[in-house]
Simulated assay, not measured.
Amino acid sequence: MPKDEKAHTSPYVSIISGGVAGGIEAFSTYPFEFTKTRVQLHQEKGISQKLPRNPYKIAFQLYRDEGLRAMYKGCGSLVVGSIAKDAVRFLSFDTVKNAFKDPETGTLSPLRNMLGGMVSGVVASIFAVTPTERLKTALIDDARGAKRYKNGVHAIQLIIKEDGLKGLYRGFVGTTLKQAGATSFRMGSYNIIKDYERTKGITQNTAVNFINGSIAGIITTVSTQPFDVIKTRSQTAKVTTTKQAIASVMKYDGIKGFWRGTVMRLSRTVFSGGILFTSAEAVAKIIDPLFTQQTELD
């Protein structure tokens, strides 16, 4: 087995590759995220039922009525949050992997892969995901109604003024549950697949990385969609608790409401999973020799 498969990943490589990949993934797939969030925010009785059943028709209507620029409303906060989120996620996961992987094979057991992903998801939710997701959702929600927020900075100022610092952590429970589950499935399943391929001698390249990331995205979406719906409903422009968010889903849509936006989110995660891990692997391959060389010199 090549030396680099057994060597520990530098924390600098994890942070840079994860951050760059997160920013690329967030920007390139944002219209899917925008549409998914708007669908989940249609909670008034009778309105959600009038929406087209095909989520791509909804996306086309939004584009036709509001333009492409409107479909990137709140994108800045998500990109910044994704850079921080994925830098933290990759750093946390690689730290766990460095500590517990088999020294001979350079792999983790499936359970440790999943637990490593869960830990990195919780850490990312605390330090990056919840406040940026809250800001993104509030901006998208505000754009379809009151239009009180001039921009992201103005939105932060109003949220803190009206609800205090805790306003940026609305939906923390739902977001953390989603991140713990999503990162566990995404990072865990991707690395389980990658470790399996490594033991079978399957060459890792861009196409393989993209397919593996897409599969991980599908597994993640199907498993964690209810948490995503609860998180979105908790982070609207109007102050809403996690309990109120769950109650509103049950009141207007029933159990099936917890899977609202699944098709659009699935469309995004198939691409985002492939883009995220392909980008991360590519960046790591470029910068890893730089930090390896520096370590040897030190």
Rank of each mutant, 00 (worst) to 15 (best):
A146C: 07
R89H: 08
T292A: 00
G273T: 02
T175G: 10
R170M: 07
K57G: 03
I156V: 15
H154D: 15
G261R: 01
L91I: 05
K45C: 03
L115D: 06
K85P: 03
S125W: 05
Q179H: 07
D228F: 08
L51R: 10
D94F: 07
F277M: 08
T183Q: 10
A99H: 14
S10E: 00
F227Y: 11
H8A: 14
Q61V: 02
E44A: 14
G164Y: 05
V123R: 02
G254P: 01
S82M: 12
Y30S: 08
F277C: 01
G188V: 04
A138T: 15
Q61T: 03
F27W: 15
E281M: 09
T232C: 07
G217P: 02
R69F: 04
F291D: 00
V229A: 04
A138W: 04
Q61W: 08
I219D: 00
G152N: 11
N212F: 07
I287M: 00
K161H: 13
F291T: 00
T95N: 10
G117I: 01
E133V: 08
L108G: 11
A84F: 09
T132P: 05
T278Y: 00
I218C: 13
Y72L: 07
G23K: 04
P31W: 02
G76M: 09
A143I: 07
T105R: 07
K178F: 10
